[in-house]
């Protein structure tokens, strides 16, 4: 509810409210102008993603250190279920036991990390930005420029960074499993095969290579964009719902209706979002496993 009061007290329009909440706390101290600007660093996304990774690692380390072979406690049981789920999924997709030693922990890391980053959406949209505004103002800066976005996966840089890393791992396994020559051979022969006629073979080689290139690019982009799109749309909807409560002008009928609408819509969307958060984390992990599994299969 702090959203509505903050918005009403400071007299910002709904457009300014949304724009303020969609601006990162970055190294240029304002909205990024160009669509692609390599010199900008979003400190908030970096901070929250690393902080969540540290928290997750600490919790998992504590559970692993206190794990017992006897009757497991609740936390240990939950973590064991999670680990077994990931191992089961990995076994279904990747058949090389040696690769699984690296890929299964990778899948677990991705699942927990993405889940926690997505779950930042459940905090009220104004909680962390308002705390940050207080700190920023207390430190002697202009509190109106205290920007903060709490959901790292609603930052396309984070999701595309993760999907690019997955692409690099796929390329590594392509080379490792098939060898440089084997992989190069697959690149020019894979979807459509080749021919004995040298002219046709060269043409088919170009077509095959183009198809492979398109496949890699579209896999990587859709992998990152899927997570980003879900989380960005979710975050934006929470903000739009918060604007309904911001229409409060006093104890009159429209204000009360907006207030009730805010509560109902926020509750409904938050419940649906629990599904989205868990599902997207699971899908990101499964697709990582599937893509790495594809790198293991020859055509």
């Amino acid at each position: 509810m702090s959203a509505e009061h903050a918005a009403a007290q400071q007299g910002v329009t709904s457009g300014e409210y949304i724009a303020h909440h969609l601006t990162y706390f970055n190294s240029i101290g304002g909205k990024q102008q160009a669509i692609i600007d390599w010199s900008v660093i979003n400190y908030d996304s970096v901070f929250f993603s690393i902080a969540l990774a540290v928290i997750a690692s600490l919790v998992m380390w504590l559970v692993a250190r206190r794990a017992s072979a006897g009757i497991p406690g609740r936390v240990q049981g939950a973590v064991e279920m999670l680990v077994e789920m990931v191992i089961d999924q990995t076994k279904g997709v990747i058949h090389s036991a040696e690769s699984r030693k690296f890929v299964a922990p990778l899948g677990l890391t991705i699942f927990i990390w993405v889940f926690l980053m997505n779950a930042m959406d459940f905090l009220p949209v104004d909680l962390l930005p308002n705390i940050w505004r207080g700190i920023y103002g207390a430190a002697g800066h202009d509190a109106h420029h205290a920007y903060l976005r709490a959901v790292p996966t609603a930052d396309i840089n984070i999701t595309m960074g993760m999907s690019l890393t997955v692409l690099l791992i796929c390329l590594y396994y392509n080379v490792k499993i098939k060898g440089i020559g084997g992989w190069a051979h697959e690149l020019v022969t894979a979807p459509f095969g080749t021919s004995k006629n040298p002219v046709v073979a060269v043409i088919l080689g170009f077509v095959n290579f183009a198809m492979q290139l398109i496949e890699f690019v579209s896999k990587t982009i859709s992998h990152g964009m899927r997570l980003f799109g879900n989380m960005f749309a979710g975050e934006l909807l929470f903000m739009l719902i918060a604007l309904m409560g911001a229409a409060w002008t006093g104890a009159n009928v429209p204000s009360v209706l907006f207030f009730i609408g805010d509560l109902v819509a926020a509750l409904a969307w938050a419940i649906f979002h629990i599904l989205v958060v868990a599902l997207q984390a699971f899908i990101f992990m499964m697709l990582t496993l599937v893509y790495i599994g594809q790198a293991h299969e020859g055509h």
């Binding site: 879900n230 960005f232 599902l279």
Partner: peptide, 23 residues
């Protein structure tokens, strides 16, 4: 559920872009 996520992807990406345009 995996396929729901895959099928949903294009729609959700479109929704995100449309919301961005709109806002």
């Amino acid at each position: 559920f995996l396929l729901i996520g895959l099928i949903d992807a294009a729609f959700i990406i479109g929704t995100g872009i449309a919301l961005w345009f709109g806002t």
